[in-house]
């Protein structure tokens, strides 16, 4: 996706580790130290058991396509349309949002397997590495971008 200038993420106190790992090319989410539940977006405590203890667990980067939309109205000056936003159900459970790269909307089907890859973009706050999704067949020649 050709993008000139993306909106910067909203960074609450619990978001910092997520973005630090992403900058290193790692996809990690919080895992409750008490019950093992995964949660995303990051938050202060586990919605299952209310424990605040947690670690940052690496996800496999495998997922499947839950839903997508194609933006035709441009809302952000630096993000040209059309572009695809997808909700991806990761193999471990959490649902993540990302863009689909290397595929057209007409190629998409529900539950199709997807693989995470990292894309370097620019924002008003400087460079940012974000987690994106692509079809596994697409991965070999996309991986070098990560």
């Amino acid at each position: 996706m050709t993008t000139t200038h993306r909106p910067a993420p909203r960074r609450g106190v619990f978001d910092e580790p997520y973005w630090r790992y992403a900058a290193a090319g790692e996809l990690r989410v919080q895992r409750c130290a008490a019950c093992g539940g995964l949660r995303y977006p990051p938050g202060p405590s586990c919605p299952e058991c209310l424990s605040a203890e947690h670690e940052w667990a690496a996800l496999s980067g495998r997922g499947s396509l839950l839903a997508w939309t194609v933006f035709h109205r441009q809302y952000f000056p630096g993000v040209p349309v059309p572009y695809i936003v997808a909700a991806v159900r990761t193999a471990e459970g959490p649902i993540l949002i990302g863009n689909i790269v290397g595929a057209a909307a007409s190629d998409l089907t529900h539950e199709m397997p997807l693989t995470a890859l990292f894309e370097d973009v620019t924002t008003a706050d400087g460079p940012l590495r974000i987690c994106q999704w692509t079809h596994p067949d697409d991965r070999p020649h996309r991986e070098e971008q990560a």
Partner: peptide, 27 residues
């Protein structure tokens, strides 16, 4: 929170969130 949290990926507006729902619901 979902209105603004995914802005780096260009996801914004309640309409887009309902478009995601509609995409799944229609299927």
């Amino acid at each position: 929170l979902a209105y603004t949290y995914y802005a780096p990926w260009g996801l914004t507006s309640q309409g887009a969130l309902y478009a995601l729902l509609a995409n799944r619901y229609l299927a």
